[in-house]
Every structure is written in structure tokens, then in C-alpha cells.
């Protein structure tokens, strides 16, 4: 913690964005599941969809404001998650070495990764596309179900359901791995920093190419 060899991985803006994402997406996932299975009485279902709507609006504002404030970071994020190289195929062939490490306590060689490993890249792609789909279809389903063409609304509904299921399942994996990588968890929820040595092991290409010493001014 007091090691001076720390890298600022998540600046404050990213951490605030992530906090807002947590307090909007987790309720959205929970209320979305309730809306899908409809287990409760009329007034409870009404309360559920109200929470869903408010959390959805919060998520929309969160995404929009981060897109504007952290435009450069968004572009960096997109350029990273959408870049595919041969290393990604090698990474998926051994699944990043995680099953071997978790189940067999064996270390296997893993191709060098950038800031995000291939699994995170796939997650990033899904979160971005799925998130955009969820926001657009969700707003349309809330405000225009009565006057957009019926088939279009039904299509938007199906897209919303599919994207929601995909992201909710990804969320479980994300929470598990996020807590498993406890340094990253602390970085995201507390101070934003990770140790230099660990980063070098986890993301050698990133540290090598993109990390610079703090400029003195």
C-alpha cells in the first residue's frame, strides 16, 4: 500500500462512473429479473418498474456524462476492446490460465496481454454493445410502445430481453473475478492504484507501451 511503485489505473472520474454504474445496474438487473418472472402483486410490480425506470434513467445519464467528460478514455477503451490479435486466440485456447490456476494450482504460460486481457476485451465489447442496446430499447419501450409500429416494439422488446440476460450473466462472472483479483477490486472501489510489479505480470504490454512516469511539473 505504501509502496511508491504504484500505477494510477483508475482516475477519480472512472471510479465515480463505476460507482454510478453499480448503483444503477445492480437494481436494474434485480428489478429486470422480477419484471421478467412477474412473481409479485400488482402494486409491488408497479413499484418494481418504477425503480427500473429511475435506475434506467440514472444509467443513461451516467453513460452520457461519462461519454462527454471522459471522451478520450471511452475512445481508448473502445480501441482496446475492439483490437484483436493472434494473442487473443492463444489466450482463449488456455482460457487465460485461470481454470488451471484455480482448479489444478498449476501455472501455464499465457501470451502477454495489454491493459485488458482477451476475456476482459470480450466483456468490454458485450458491455458496450449490450449497454447501448439496453439504453436505447429501454427508453423506447418506456416512452413509445403505443405509437411505434407493433412489430418494431416487439423486436425492441426481444433485443432488450436478450441483451439484459447476457449482461446479467456477465455481471455474475464480473463480480466474481473482480473480487478474486482483490488488488483490482481495491483500485476500482477505493484508491485507483495498483502495484507496478503486479501490473507488469498481469498486463506486460500495457506497462511496457503505455505506462509513463508521472511528469514532474
Amino acid at each position: 500500500m505504501h509502496s511508491k511503485n504504484m500505477i494510477l489505473k483508475h482516475p477519480l472520474s472512472v471510479r465515480i462512473f463505476h460507482y454510478l454504474l453499480v448503483i444503477s445496474f445492480v437494481p436494474l438487473a434485480v428489478t429486470g429479473l422480477i419484471l421478467y418472472f412477474k412473481p409479485f402483486s400488482e402494486s409491488t410490480m408497479n413499484l418494481t418498474i418504477r425503480v427500473h425506470v429511475i435506475a434506467g434513467i440514472l444509467l443513461t445519464f451516467d453513460a452520457l456524462s461519462f461519454f462527454m467528460i471522459g471522451y478520450k478514455r471511452v475512445v481508448l477503451f473502445l480501441s482496446r476492446v475492439f483490437s484483436i490479435s493472434g494473442n487473443d486466440f492463444k489466450w482463449f485456447a488456455v482460457l487465460g490460465g485461470y481454470p488451471q490456476k484455480l482448479l489444478l494450482h498449476k501455472k501455464v504460460p499465457v501470451p502477454p496481454m495489454g491493459k485488458y486481457n482477451s476475456g476482459q476485451k470480450l466483456f468490454g465489447v458485450c458491455v458496450f454493445i449490450g449497454g447501448v442496446i439496453l439504453i436505447f430499447t429501454g427508453l423506447a419501450l418506456w416512452a413509445f410502445p403505443h405509437n411505434l409500429p407493433r412489430g418494431t416494439v416487439a423486436l425492441l422488446g426481444h433485443l432488450h430481453t436478450i441483451a439484459a440476460w447476457a449482461l446479467t450473466l456477465f455481471l455474475c462472472v464480473h463480480i466474481f473475478l473482480g473480487i478474486y483479483m482483490f488488488d483490482d477490486f481495491k483500485a476500482m472501489f477505493l484508491h485507483g492504484k495498483i502495484p507496478y510489479e503486479e501490473a507488469k505480470e498481469m498486463a506486460p504490454l500495457w506497462v511496457e507501451k503505455e505506462i509513463i512516469p508521472l511528469p514532474k511539473n
Binding site: 416512452a143 413509445f144 403505443h146 405509437n147 411505434l148 409500429p149 407493433r150 412489430g151
Partner: peptide, 13 residues
């Protein structure tokens, strides 16, 4: 499927 009974301009509700 490609239409609805809404005759007026499309407005959110």
C-alpha cells in the same frame, strides 16, 4: 407488424 393505430404525430408518453 409495420404499423400501429396511432394516427397523430409520434410523441413519447
Amino acid at each position: 407488424k409495420n404499423g400501429s393505430s396511432w394516427i397523430e404525430a409520434i410523441r413519447p408518453w
